[in-house]
C-alpha cells in the first residue's frame, strides 16, 4: 500500500463535494468499511502476530512453549549462511527466468504476429503451458520429462550422445529455472503480442517505403514501441516468480543439498522441518522488508521510464 502511495502521491485537491456535510460523507464511505476491515484482518493482524513471534523463542518440538528472547532470532537470520544463500538463489532464479522468458516471449510474439496457416491453433498451443497448474507442471517435469531412467528428455537426447543424465541432481537449479521459463514464456508472449497488434500499420509501411530492413525496423520502431509492454511483463513476471514454491517443492524439495532452496522454500522448511516458529517469523519479517525496498525501487524506476516514454512520444 505504501508502495503505491509513493508511486502516485494523491493530488492535493478538495474532493469534498460542495453542500455535503461531514456526516453524509462518512455515510457514503460506509460501504467500503467491510472491505477495509477484511483487508486489515487478513493482512495486518497476521503481520503483527508474526512480528510478535519474531521476538520469541518458540519451537514446536519442545514442550517449553514461547518466551521472549529479544533480537536473537534476527541475529540468527543475519548471520545464517542458509538465509543468505536462499536469498541469492531467489534473485538468481527470478532474474534468469524472467529475462530468458522475456527474450523467448518477444521472439515468439514477433513470429505469431505474422499471418500464416493455422495461426490460431499454434497460438493456443504456445499459450498452453501458462494454463497448466504449476503443481501439475512441476510433477510432469520431475517425472515423465526429466527422470534419469524413464524420462522423455533423456530419450530425445540419446541420439546426441547424452546418457542417463540425472537432471534434478546434477542440474537442479537449471531444471527448476527451465520449468519456470517454460511456464512463463507464454505470459510474456501474450503481453508482447498484445503490444504488437496495437502497433500502427502505417508506420511500418512508411519504414518499408523508406527502405528499412526487417532488423532495422524492429530495432528502431517495434522495440521502442514495445518497451512499456516488456517492462510490464518483467515487473509482473518478477512479482510472481520471486514467490515460486510449487516447482521447488515438487521437483527437488530444495535440494540436492540446498542448491534450489529459495526464500519461500527456506521459510517453509524453518516451520515444517525445524519447527522454529520464532526464527521463521524473523526471516519472514526480514523478507517482507527487503521485498518492500526492492519493490519501491522497481516501481519508481518503472514510473520514471513510463513518464519518460510519455514525454518522448
Amino acid at each position: 500500500m505504501t508502495v503505491l502511495e509513493d508511486l502516485a502521491p494523491p493530488p492535493q485537491v478538495e474532493v469534498r463535494p460542495r453542500g455535503i456535510s461531514r456526516r453524509e460523507r462518512w455515510q457514503l464511505r460506509l460501504p467500503l468499511l467491510p472491505a477495509l476491515i477484511y483487508t486489515i484482518v487478513v493482512t495486518q493482524i497476521p503481520f503483527l502476530v508474526t512480528l510478535w513471534y519474531s521476538f520469541q523463542s518458540y519451537f514446536w518440538n519442545t514442550s517449553s512453549g514461547a518466551h521472549f528472547n529479544g533480537l536473537s532470532n534476527y541475529k540468527t537470520v543475519f548471520t545464517s549462511p542458509a538465509f543468505r544463500g536462499s536469498l541469492v538463489r531467489s534473485v538468481v532464479m527470478t532474474v534468469t527466468a524472467v529475462i530468458v522468458a522475456m527474450i523467448l516471449g518477444v521472439a515468439l510474439a514477433v513470429l505469431l504476429d505474422r499471418k500464416f496457416f493455422g495461426r490460431g491453433v499454434v497460438r493456443t498451443l504456445i499459450i498452453t503451458p501458462f494454463l497448466v497448474m504449476p503443481a501439475a507442471a512441476a510433477l510432469v517435469w520431475a517425472g515423465p520429462m526429466l527422470d534419469p531412467n524413464f524420462g522423455l528428455v533423456n530419450w530425445l537426447l540419446e541420439p546426441f550422445g547424452v546418457h542417463h543424465v540425472a537432471w534434478l541432481s546434477t542440474h537442479a537449479l537449471g531444471s527448476v529455472i527451465l520449468v519456470m521459463i517454460w511456464q512463463w514464456t507464454p505470459f510474456m508472449t501474450l503481453i508482447v503480442l498484445a503490444g504488437l497488434q496495437g502497433q500502427p500499420a502505417d508506420t511500418l509501411e512508411a519504414a518499408k517505403v523508406d527502405g528499412a530492413g526487417a532488423l532495422a525496423t524492429f530495432r528502431e520502431l517495434t522495440f521502442p514501441y514495445l518497451r512499456p509492454y516488456i517492462e510490464l511483463g518483467i515487473l509482473l513476471g518478477s512479482i510472481y516468480l520471486v514467490n515460486v514454491f510449487d516447482a521447488v517443492r515438487l521437483m527437488t524439495n530444495g535440494g540436492p543439498g540446498t542448491s534450489t532452496t529459495n526464500l519461500p522454500f527456506y521459510l517453509f522448511q524453518e516451520v515444517n522441518n525445524a519447527f522454529d516458529i520464532g526464527g521463521a517469523a524473523a526471516a519472514g519479517v526480514v523478507t517482507v522488508i527487503l521485498t518492500i525496498i526492492v519493490a519501491t525501487f522497481a516501481l519508481r524506476m518503472f514510473a520514471r521510464v513510463f513518464q519518460f516514454e510519455e514525454a518522448g512520444v
Partner: peptide, 20 residues
C-alpha cells in the same frame, strides 16, 4: 535432531549430487 538431521542430510545429498 529434527533440524540437525535434516541439515546434515541436505549436505550429504549435495555431496551425492556432486555439488560439494
Amino acid at each position: 535432531f529434527e533440524s540437525l538431521g535434516l541439515t546434515v542430510a541436505q549436505q550429504i545429498a549435495g555431496a551425492i549430487a556432486g555439488t560439494e
